Simulated assay, not measured.
Amino acid sequence: MRTPTGSPHALHLRMAFVFLSLAAASSQAGAVVTITGGYFGPRTLTLRVGSTAGVDTVQFNVVGPGTGNSLPAAAPIQGNGTAIAASSGGVAFRMSMQLPIGSLSQAMTTTVTSPAALTCTGGNCTGYSIPFSSISWTVSPAPSGPNAAFDLQNGTFAGGGTQTLLNFVVTFGGGSAVDVTSTMNFTYANTVAYPAGTYTGTVTYTASLP
């Protein structure tokens, strides 16, 4: 399966985000991870991935040697292994939780659930799919400082299951607020050249408190 020089064939990968938001958003944090005490308000938990409304789409455009020749019978071949950044840019990530004075220690967990693969939804790629594990992310700014362990870390979608992104226990009995703010920058591994077409999939982010 080979793409001739100058071929217009392209591979489009689209990954939509569904996010769960609980309670009202708090004020914008000025650092990657901010932990403060003395909180008197109600218990709240807010998760934002992408824009404040709707479902965001992360898109990768793969052209030239990175795609197949669009023949339905052609099998995927070796890709060039050069990772391709999302053409849609970075995605905002923010988890904010607030526990009032007198609260017991509580564990917050943020997870992401992804299907096993992105499936063909257009073009001559019928019957083909791309493993979700072909998509990774880095976070910016990079985790640093005394609270770096609580920050969102770089990772790769497991594909076909749920994986934990954040998991920590808040133990401040005097009331506390924790804010984790990052930008997720996604890349496609491009290790296999799939038939040209559009492949789509949706991931769901969830934050929870007991």
Rank of each mutant, 00 (worst) to 15 (best):
P4L: 04
T5M: 04
T5P: 05
S7C: 04
P8S: 13
L13D: 00
M15D: 00
M15S: 04
F17T: 14
F17V: 14
V18N: 06
A23E: 07
A24R: 11
A25C: 00
S26I: 05
S26K: 04
Q28T: 15
A29W: 00
G30A: 13
G30K: 08
G30L: 12
V32E: 09
I35W: 02
G38A: 03
P42Q: 03
R43E: 14
R48S: 03
T52G: 04
A53V: 13
G54H: 01
V55F: 00
D56K: 03
V58N: 02
V58P: 01
F60V: 03
N61V: 14
V63T: 15
P65V: 13
P65A: 09
G66S: 10
N69E: 08
L71F: 11
A73M: 09
A75C: 01
P76W: 08
I77V: 15
G81K: 06
G81H: 07
A83D: 09
I84P: 01
S87P: 00
V91Y: 06
R94G: 09
R94W: 14
M97E: 13
G102I: 14
L104K: 09
L104D: 09
S105R: 10
S105T: 15
Q106V: 12
A107Y: 07
M108W: 07
T109N: 10
T110K: 06
T111S: 08
V112H: 09
P115F: 08
L118I: 12
T121S: 14
G123A: 05
G123R: 03
N124T: 15
N124P: 02
T126W: 09
T126R: 07
G127T: 12
Y128W: 12
Y128R: 11
I130M: 10
I130Y: 14
I130K: 10
I130S: 11
I130V: 15
S133K: 07
V139R: 12
P143K: 07
G145I: 11
N147V: 02
A149G: 14
A149D: 10
D151A: 15
L152A: 03
Q153E: 02
G155D: 06
G155W: 13
T162L: 06
T164D: 08
L165G: 04
L166P: 00
N167V: 02
F172N: 09
G173P: 14
G174Q: 11
S176F: 01
A177D: 02
V178H: 13
D179W: 00
D179H: 02
S182L: 00
S182T: 15
T183V: 14
N185Q: 07
T187D: 04
N190E: 10
A193I: 14
A196P: 05
T198A: 08
G201L: 04
T202I: 12
P210R: 07
P210D: 03
